[in-house]
Amino acid sequence: MNSLPLGSRIGALLGRMGLKGRLLVIAIPTVWLLVFFLIPFLVVAKISFSEAAIARPPYLPITEWVDGFFTINLNFGNYMFLLEDPLYVAAYLGSVKIAAISTIIALLIGYPMAYLIARSAPERRNLLLMMVILPFWTSFLLRVYAWIGFLKGNGIINNLLMNVGIIDEPLVMLQTDFAVYVGVVYTYLPFMILPLYANLVKLDEAYLEASADLGARPVTTFFTVTLPLSMSGIIAGCMLVFIPAVGEFVIPALLGGPDTLMIGQVLWNEFFSNRDWPIASSVAIVMLFVLVIPIMLLRWAQASGGGES
C-alpha cells in the first residue's frame, strides 16, 4: 500500500468513497462552480432582498427568530427602486446598447481577420494567431490607459492629424462614447477572432469549390455557404464579446465621459460610494437576468436551427 504512488492512493481512497473516474471528473468542476459561483450568487441574491442599514455589514438580516417564530422578510423595495429611478433603466439600456454596437463592430472587423488567418498558409497561421493574442501579455489596465494617450486632446492621434493639416482644432475623443466603443472593441476583439478562426479553419474547401462549380461567384459563395456554415462561430464570438461588455466597468470609467452611462459603473458606485449593498446586489441580479435571457434564446435558436456543429 505504502509503495503506491500518491496519485493512486488518493484514487483508491476516493474510490472507497464511491467517487470513481468519470464521476470524479465531473465532480471537480461541479464543486468549483458550487463554491465559487453558486454560493456567492445566493449570498448576493440574499443581500438584494434585505434592507440597507448603517451597520457592519451594511444591511439587515432577512431572517428573524422571535418568540419561537422563524420569519423571512423579503424586501422587494430594492427591485422596485430600480424601476422607479430612471437612472437604472437608462444604465441597463445604455450598457446593452454599447455592448451590442461594440459586438457588431468587433464582428465586422474580426470576421475578415479570422477569415484571412484561416485561409493563410498553415505555417503562417500560428504567427498570425500569436499576434492576435499578443496584447494579452500586457495588463488590460495598461492597454486602456495607453488609449488615453492616443485619444486625449493633445494625444497622438490629434497631434498627428493636426501636423498633417487635416484638422485645426484637436478633436474631442476622450471621455465620449466614441472612446468607450474604441476601448471595448479593441479589448474584446481577440474574443471575437478566436472562435471565428476555430470555426472557419475547419470549413471544408470542397464546399467552396462545389459552390463555385455550381456557378456561384465568390461573393455569392460567401453569403450562401461560408457565412451560414460559420454561424456557430459568429454566435460564440458575439457572446464572448457581448456578455463581458455589458458589465464592463473599467473602460467606461477611464475612457467614457460624464454622460456615458453603463451598469457596471452604477454597480461600482452603489457598492463603494453609496455603500448600499442591497441596491447594488439587486442591480447585479437584474444584470444577470438581462444576460441570461438572450443567451437562453440563442441556445434555443441554435438547437432548433440546424444539426451541424
Binding site: D204, A206, Y207, E209, A210, S211, V225, P228, L229, G306, G307, E308
Partner: peptide, 9 residues
C-alpha cells in the same frame, strides 16, 4: 466531388 461536398446547412 469525392467527399460529395453536400452543403450541410
Amino acid at each position: 466531388f469525392q467527399s460529395y461536398a453536400l452543403f450541410p446547412h
